[in-house]
Every structure is written in structure tokens, then in C-alpha cells.
Design a protein around this nucleic acid. Structure first.
Length: 371
RNA sequence: GCGGCCGUAGAUCAAUUGGCCAGAUCGCCGCCCUGUCACGGCGGAGGUUGCCGGUUCGAGCCCGGUCGGCCGCG
């Protein structure tokens, strides 16, 4: 099957595969746009739900969109906001509930006292207000303890919500008089758990409605952290070849390689940024420029570096001999150990830049493999 | 030389009038993080309470001695 190498969004070209880190609250913690660009990051994913509570839509609209607001020159995707709301609700029922109409949220972010109603239409309107390049339909992702019946409901609702999102999207395009070349791409998400019948039903219904791209939604990995690659592959088989596929929330570097191999184009994951802050850095075991990434066991291409171990207190070596990031070019392991020990924000910044660079390097190498 | 204060995990400190298994924090070691309420979460190792003796059913706490440290006076 031919792999889609790139698409145009307006005047911009989005090359595949691509990894977008999660700037949920309009920032990759401790980094600015220049840091991101130098780390090889081309796009960010943002979250409308979090941005509604802070800084609020009015501020962002006044700035001319979220990219202007945060001075981000690259590409940007907004998620629907559904995942956050639903995972909060599944964690604690007092947060709210879901029905066919949308999501009722009793508490705002961080305990604000407001009742909040998130519908497919509202999600689309907010995302279009944020003026990102790619927007995503609100979907219903079941909790981890979901039953077969929950998955059936989820698929039915996801299809219905996707239809409503598409209608609202077209309505807004007209209302806002957005020219064809400036419209954001609209992606829909395939639900259905590990059940192929449900996945097929969902995928086919979404394709029939017609979207610019499709996502692999739900929990992409099992409790042991193993990617459900069987489902991943099946979903691809149900979708049109010429549309980009988004593996939502994927994943570890080896997960990205494995998902890329079965046909996915877009990835996003909090892992590299969160783990950098939690003191786990990814390092190359082999020179990524010299190894055939597709023929090597993906898991064996990487190992971990834990900068808070006392053995690194006096280690003058660089963190990763194969990495060209700001940290690896300029500083020793001992210095990073020190920065984490004293709790300086530079530790976060350098560690985050490093992990992002490992991801962007991986993307560069995967692109060479489809050239 | 005399008088006073102080010795409790690697570090800094806690432990009602003597009373379960001497605690906390940091450090150390290990684990976790997948469309981020996450500068986080979970777990573990580590003490003959300076040492010797005494009083007591029972001592980190009381008594005597001793060693070490600090302060004051000679």
C-alpha cells in the first residue's frame, strides 16, 4: 500500500510521518517556540477544553488565534476536548456525565463552580475560534472498564457526533466566510475497542460522511503497555489510502515505528515531555543515521537515561552520544544531575528538548525510509 | 583545670510525666507515566539512640563514669 508522503494545508505542507507534542495549555512546559523549532518540532497539539478555562476564548480570539497568541509559527492541531472531559469523568463521576447530546461537566477545570456543557457543535466552534490547521471531531471514548455494550454506545455516539461535527464545520465555514485554501482539516476518530466488527462499523460510517483524515481512537495500548497493533492495522484497512491517519496518543518511540509500519502518519504523545520532567530521558542505543530503523527491533533502538541517579553526579560524559540537541551538545550528565537536584527549571528545559529531539530525529529517519 | 550545653538513619532534626515495633524530611535504591487537572505518583533499604555500667517490670529520656564537639571562666 502506498504511503501518503505529505498533504497541503492552505499554503503549508505537512510532511509525513509527523509527531506533534502536546501543548495542552498552549505551552510545552518550560520551552518557547524557538526551543521547539531547534528541537525539530513542526507542530503542536492543543486542547480546547483547557484553553477555555485559561486564558479563555476572548483573549485568544483577540490575538487572532492560538498560534498568534503563543507566537507559534509551525502547524497546530486541536483535539476535540472530549478525551480530557471523559477521562476526568471516568476517574471521578462527580465531575460530570455523558449522554447522546454531549458532555455535562459539573465542575470546571480545577474546581471552578460552573456547569459546563460540551457538545460536538461547541467543540467545533471553539476549535475554529482557535484557528488551528487541523481540528478533530468530538468522540466518545469509553473508560478502561467498558463493557461490550459501552463500546456499542460509544460507536453509535461517535458516528452521530461526527455527523453533527461535520454539519457544524460546514455551517461555520460559510458563516465565517473561510476560503477553501484557508480552511482547517477536519478529522474523525474511529472507536470500537479491540472489536473488529465495531471498528469496521465505525470506520465505514465515518468514511461515508467523509473527512479529511481519520484517527485511531480509544486506548491504543493494553495494561502492560503493549500497543494493540492488530486493531491498528485493521482500522487502516477500513480507511481510504489517500487520507492521513492519526494514531492518537501514540506513543513510545517504538510504538511510533510500529504504527508507522502499518500506515499511520500523525502521532502525538505526552510521554517525551512528561517523562523528561519526571527524569526519564530516551537515548539512542545505535547511531540513528547508520542503522536501518525498519529492520531493527524498535524496542532495542532506545534505552533510558535517569539523570537523578547518584552515579551520574560526577559523570562528565554527554547524555546521548548520538544526539545533537542543546543538552547533548553543551552539557555533561553531571550538570544535568545537578540541575535536577537543585530543582532548577533549566533541568526541565534541557531534558524536554532532548526527548523531543529524539522523537524528531526518529521522524526524520522514518521519512528517509519512504523517500 | 573548672562550669555549662550537646551527641538519635548518609544529612538535618522529632519522639507526651520513663511505656506498643524510635518517626519525619532530604539523600540513596527501584518502579510507574500513552488524544497531560501530572514541577507528579508508588514502593524499598537504612538506627545496638557516642561508649561502659547502674536504677527500674520497662531507659533515647533518670544516675555515675568515659570519649568526642561547642561555649564561658581561669
Amino acid at each position: 500500500m502506498p504511503y501518503l508522503k505529505q498533504i497541503k494545508i492552505g499554503k503549508k505542507i505537512l510532511r509525513f510521518p509527523v509527531y506533534f507534542p502536546d501543548a495542552t495549555r498552549a505551552v510545552i512546559r518550560s520551552l518557547d517556540s524557538q526551543d521547539l523549532i531547534k528541537a525539530g518540532i513542526e507542530g503542536l497539539i492543543l486542547n480546547p477544553y483547557h484553553l477555555l478555562s485559561q486564558p479563555g476564548l476572548a483573549v485568544i480570539k483577540k490575538s487572532g488565534g492560538i498560534k498568534n497568541y503563543m507566537n507559534w509559527p509551525g502547524l497546530a492541531i486541536t483535539d476535540s476536548g472530549g478525551w480530557q472531559l471523559l477521562s476526568l469523568i471516568y476517574k471521578d463521576k462527580s465531575f460530570g456525565r455523558v449522554d447522546d447530546h454531549g458532555v455535562i461537566f459539573y465542575k470546571g477545570s480545577l474546581g471552578e463552580e460552573k456547569k459546563y456543557f460540551f457538545t460536538p457543535e461547541k467543540s467545533i466552534r471553539v476549535q475554529m475560534d482557535l484557528r488551528t490547521d487541523i481540528i478533530i471531531c468530538l468522540d466518545d471514548c469509553p473508560g478502561k472498564k467498558a463493557t461490550r455494550k459501552d463500546y456499542e454506545t460509544s460507536v453509535r455516539r461517535t458516528i452521530d457526533w461526527a455527523r453533527r461535527c461535520k454539519a457544524e464545520y460546514e455551517k461555520q465555514l460559510k458563516k465565517r466566510k473561510i476560503p477553501t485554501g484557508a480552511r482547517p482539516l477536519l478529522l474523525a476518530v474511529v472507536q470500537g475497542g479491540s472489536d473488529k466488527k465495531l471498528r469496521r462499523k465505525c470506520a465505514q460510517a465515518l468514511v461515508k460522511i467523509g473527512f479529511d483524515g481519520y484517527g485511531w481512537g480509544g486506548w491504543t495500548a493494553d495494561k502492560e503497555g503493549n500497543l494493540d497493533i492488530e486493531t491498528a492495522r485493521f482500522i487502516i484497512s477500513q480507511l481510504p489510502e489517500d487520507k492521513p491517519k492519526f494514531a492518537l496518543g501514540v506513543g513510545y518511540p517504538w510504538d511510533i515505528i510500529n504504527s508507522f509500519k502499518v500506515g499511520y502518519h500523525i502521532f502525538d504523545c505526552v510521554i517525551p515531555t512528561r517523562e523528561a520532567r519526571h527524569k526519564r530521558l530516551y537515548t539512542w542505543t545505535k547511531d540513528p543515521g547508520r542503522v536501518n530503523v525498519l529492520k531493527t527491533n524498535p524496542r532495542k533502538l532506545f534505552c533510558f537515561f535517569y539523570p537523578d541517579k547518584a552515579k551520574y553526579r560526577v559523570d562528565s560524559k554527554r547524555v546521548d552520544q548520538f544526539c545533537d540537541c542543546r543538552l547533548c551538545r553543551n552539557h555533561s550528565r553531571a550538570y544535568l544531575y545537578h540541575l535536577f537536584k537543585i530543582g532548577d527549571s533549566l533541568a526541565w528545559r534541557l531534558a524536554t528538548i532532548h526527548n523531543l529531539r529524539v522523537y524528531s530525529k526518529l521522524i526524520e529517519i522514518l521519512r528517509k525510509n519512504i523517500a
